[in-house]
Amino acid sequence: MKIVINVTVNQKNYELAVEPNMTLVDMLREELRLTGTKKGCGLGECGACTILLDGQPVSSCVMLAVEAHNRKIVTIEGLETEKGLHPIQQAFVEKGAIQCGFCTSGMVLSAKALLDDHPHPDEQDIRKAISGNLCRCTGYQKIVEAVQSVSEGEQTS
């Protein structure tokens, strides 16, 4: 039986009826068509489905949609504004931090949560913050450099 939830996604309020066994990632992708959140493993082990839940990055594939009731969610689609890409997104573009792009949404959101809390992290802080987000393409280095460039104020938008 479906359950009605109220949830804020990217500052927009939704009232949705969801099956209890629907995961949050499926709700975002299938109900709201926000397909920027990716499904890489289904078991909370790769970070591709990272979203911000009340500001904190979590794996949306191991969270039930019904549990998002009265919570605030930000997905990758919530970062871009009418002015353009978010500085973190811009840094990822400019520093070559994106190859296949499948981990990018999660990486960017984990980086955002870090920078929101610690505007000037050191390299180890950055690596720790993205340690739940697997990337098979880049070797992480250009991702770390991108995050560093934002914290050092190289990026503005």
């Binding site: 926000l34 397909t35 920027g36 959140t37 997905t75 990758i76 689609e77 970062l79 871009e80 890409l85 997104q89 811009q90 990822f92 573009v93 400019e94 070559g96 994106i98 792009g101 990018t104 949404s105 960017v108």
Partner: peptide, 11 residues
């Protein structure tokens, strides 16, 4: 910068 990067960065 890669031509596909903005689309990938923005989801």
């Amino acid at each position: 910068p890669r031509i596909d990067a903005p689309d990938k960065a923005s989801g």
